[in-house]
Design a protein around this nucleic acid. Sequence first.
DNA 1: CTGTTAGCGCGTTCAT
DNA 2: ATGAACGCGCTAACAG
Lengths: 325, 325
Amino acid sequence: MASIREVAQEAGVGVGTVSRALNGSGYVSPETRKKIEKAAKKLNYTPNELARNLYHNKTGIVGVIVPDLEHPFFSSLVKHIEMELYEQGYKTMICNTVGISRREQEYLDMLERNIVDGIITASHGLEVEEYQKQTKPIVSIDRDLGSRIPLIGCDHAKGGKLAAELMLEARRRKVFLVSGISPNVMANDRYRTFRQILEENGVVAVLQEEMGWNIFSWEAHYKMAEEIFRLHPDVDGIFGSDLAALACLNVAQRKGIRVPEDLSIIGFDAMAPSGMVYPQLTAIRQNVELLAEISVNALLDMVEQRKNVPSRLILDVEIQRGGTV
Amino acid sequence: MASIREVAQEAGVGVGTVSRALNGSGYVSPETRKKIEKAAKKLNYTPNELARNLYHNKTGIVGVIVPDLEHPFFSSLVKHIEMELYEQGYKTMICNTVGISRREQEYLDMLERNIVDGIITASHGLEVEEYQKQTKPIVSIDRDLGSRIPLIGCDHAKGGKLAAELMLEARRRKVFLVSGISPNVMANDRYRTFRQILEENGVVAVLQEEMGWNIFSWEAHYKMAEEIFRLHPDVDGIFGSDLAALACLNVAQRKGIRVPEDLSIIGFDAMAPSGMVYPQLTAIRQNVELLAEISVNALLDMVEQRKNVPSRLILDVEIQRGGTV
DNA sequence: CTGTTAGCGCGTTCAT
DNA sequence: ATGAACGCGCTAACAG
């Protein structure tokens, strides 16, 4: 609660000197420095960050917008983003849109109001135009928001290819694809590629179900899984998000379908729960840590104007070998 | 980027009038108000939150300290806290300590530096004294930080009791208890109660393993599970956190042990992954939504000095019936 | 080397 | 009803 003026008074010097002494900027003689440090300690002085923020027009806070923090991918993403931001001296404001675009908009507005210095968005509810209006630093994960906003994501097409190849190896003939329906989103690439490769290789049937793009609840996925087996009891392959894959695995086990003998299941993301089930889920893994690190560095490059950022950054994916193929 | 002064100039009035007009405080004639609103729209004026914060000495940001955001319980907790804070007009700063008490300290210091208006802590790495030094609003989840800091948590003792009763119903004779070793933490109650009830009822052996209190990784739990079955292949009951229970379930299935016929497993928390495995995990569920709501309201009662907050708030728990008992 | 002063942008008296 | 002036706490430029 003590202000810099009080410290100056206590030390018998001017406020400017205190500021320089405590920030290590400019010249201060060793002895007055001592006096100032003693006074600061005595008064238990802590600089008021609010005044600093006003002066510097900067808060050191980065906003991270996600659709659902409870989803394993996003909680992991935010965790690693927070860790990387912390390393670089920034704080993390979490913005959970729960699929409501008004909330996404409100959080986006924090840029103009100077509450955050930049935004990393992984939520895809708002019109692209709303993002393009912004002039302050933004990076996007997995969704194309135009060339001025760097796009960072994993190689979804390769993910779809790897999954398709696994299906072909396992000689699957009737494959179900659980995809999302969001426009402009990179995740679509994996389903397109997956489907294309299977069809080119003469797989008898490639069926497709579209989940709402902002549906992340277990219940919804479980219901969908039950529908799949009700309508198509003879599917022998399933590819979808981790959640979709896990739901299908669970329903299959309840119905006594043998996995992987009679049914192959492949997830995408390979987050924690995929390793908790038995057999463990075979899945395409994206490197969330790297994704977080790259995103943070791209954003801070913009915030601190360190250097130019490429408009697209694509990360590799790999197979997590489980027991469901 | 336009300041209030520019709006005043554009409208041909003083800054004070603009401030009153836009904030609806004090008297402004309808016509000048119109002029001001037009000028504000024309210049695309957005008030600078930094200046406001400095004046009001308040940011509208609440810090939430957790040990591991990737852990299902904490990601769910933070999600619901964020939603409740949003409803009440506050923003959420996430502080992930990853078990490092220096980080916990740094985040705690944000209170004094006025970066946050209050803190909800669910991390338990720092000395109690460090929290007690603080004078600004703090509430604690699941750890006693002294009578001045409201403590909010579920009824762990009842949870332990419910779990013990399930074990007795299933006539288990050699039960393994996977507990933490953190001091001052309410979670200890559930293990103490569980153990006590089983011993009073003549269960032949109650074994115990202590996980490091800030260990949340799946790998560590999996290793521990393997150890349990290696040293005690004949256990017929296991109680621990969700993660511990899921790890044991997974290892048991790999070893061909029949669950629940030959082994009963009970988790604590009943978070999402417990419903993804087959059979679904029987677990003690705590109401995270309510926990979040209560915590936020307690904290904001302090921040806005609405009313006094009880020093302890204990929430009920219930059984989530799965297929592992 | 150090003290003084002018903003940073906004909200609120206090005269008018 | 409204404008001018002050202050929130701090930093940086400037004069000494």
